[in-house]
Design a protein around this nucleic acid. Structure first.
Lengths: 243, 243
DNA sequence: TAAATAGTGTCTATGAGACATTATGTA
DNA sequence: TACATAATGTCTCATAGACACTATTTA
């Protein structure tokens, strides 16, 4: 894009370009931030302090920063998502998995004005989740068990967004390394199995799960980590995700 | 959303609401429209008549229509995609498969101004594709073989968009009914198999493909259609997709 | 009758699911 | 020693891939 050589007449065109003043939508970035705590899959929600939906719980998010001129176009969309993540959780984007989910654009989804929301989901490792409370801004924030959301009134179309995020992570869980972003840096086979059980909501057969785990070990996706996990019974071997 | 009962103070708030005048991005909808013609997977591109990238080929698309006031919020995002599809091809959205792909939001992807592009892909049945030339507006439009795109200069980040659309349809081909939107209303097993071969770029074993096809038949996804397909050798049974 | 292609059948390897069994630690 | 759970093994079934073979039409 920026490396392309522009023809002279295009350069002249751009110098004289004035954006026509058609109305534009506001563009928000909203985040579905997951973690596992107390053996439950949880989502981070913030309590709205302002109308509309004042007092309701909502997904953390904010507006994409756009500059005033062509010379200052603002931040990348991905950067906006990472910035919101950091603002709401205090966790830098480099330590958290972040993936674009879907863009919600019903004309009346916000009663104030036209807002198009580009949504992302994030996976926070459970050892990092406790840090989140401190990082949040003035707004009240809390981790909600996803099954407890039915009783809750969520702002805007945020219930649909959470639902789609759940569908996405459940769909990808078995065919991608997603689960490794929901366990600590080092983990045992049973720990990873519990994550699968919690996310899918289905019990995972220990023997069959171990078989799949060993295949990943053979492929070099996982490696043994030093030490053993001490439990109340037989200790388990500890592994880590490579890279 | 609109069915929710608003508290009185929220109603008052909304009546007095004035959108703060932060800069907003333009939001475009760009389409990757696929069909199969001459036994090749093809994408519809239009030649740009204006700067920037004047003379280059680009994906069809346009800006989302946003109203001036909260009372008139504009068109749904999905509706914008369907409208662009119809403007560019003359085909109503009801006859064409349309699915959101991804939202591209690098800050400098358009040299004029900040533009966020919500992209969709569409699948046009080959019997409808010939109608497209007539439907297009003044811009020159043509179906390009996807393998021939390497030599072509595409505008903006449209090459990345096409690439992602290809990855998406190849990934979904085997696990969703996508392929039925790339054959005529009625089709034979070998015809559907050719679609799979063309999209994936890999030869499809006739026996194994037929086995999977028969499973879909058992599941009631497909049903026999009247008649036989006349060829230069043994005629084939004709089927249709249900609903 | 030959050529072409629709349609069938078979063998093998792989992975999933269900479930029994053994091994090794702690209380 | 009893208990918990990590770790291993086994049986069956469904599906994918490779490929040989039969059937039916046109030229």
């Amino acid at each position: 894009m920026s490396t392309r050589k522009k023809p002279d007449d295009e350069v002249a065109y751009l110098e004289n370009y004035r954006a026509k003043d058609y109305p534009r939508p506001s563009v928000a970035v909203d985040l579905v931030i997951f973690t596992i705590a107390d053996a439950q899959l949880r989502v981070l929600l913030v309590k709205r302090k302002e109308h509309p939906f004042k007092g309701s719980w909502a997904l953390p998010g904010g507006f994409v920063r756009v500059g005033e001129t062509a010379a200052d176009p603002g931040e990348d969309l991905e950067a906006a998502a990472a910035r919101e993540l950091e603002e709401e959780t205090g966790l830098s984007g480099s330590r958290v998995y972040l993936e674009q989910l879907y863009t919600f654009g019903k004309a009346n989804r916000d009663p104030r004005m036209r807002v198009i929301s580009v949504t992302y989901f994030a996976l926070v490792r459970p050892d990092l989740a406790p840090l989140v409370q401190a990082g949040g801004d003035a707004a009240q924030a809390a981790w909600f068990h996803v099954d407890g959301l039915k009783k809750l009134e969520l702002a805007f179309d945020h219930r649909d967004i959470v639902q789609m995020a759940l569908t996405r992570i459940r769909g990808k869980l078995d065919d991608s390394p997603l689960a490794f972003d929901l366990v600590p840096m080092t983990f045992t086979i049973p720990e990873l199995r519990h994550v699968h059980a919690i996310v899918t909501g289905l019990p995972q057969d220990p023997g069959n799960f171990r078989r799949r785990f060993n295949r990943m070990l053979d492929e070099g996706l996982i490696e043994k980590a030093p030490g053993k996990r001490i439990t109340t019974s037989k200790p388990a071997t500890v592994y880590r995700f490579r890279r």
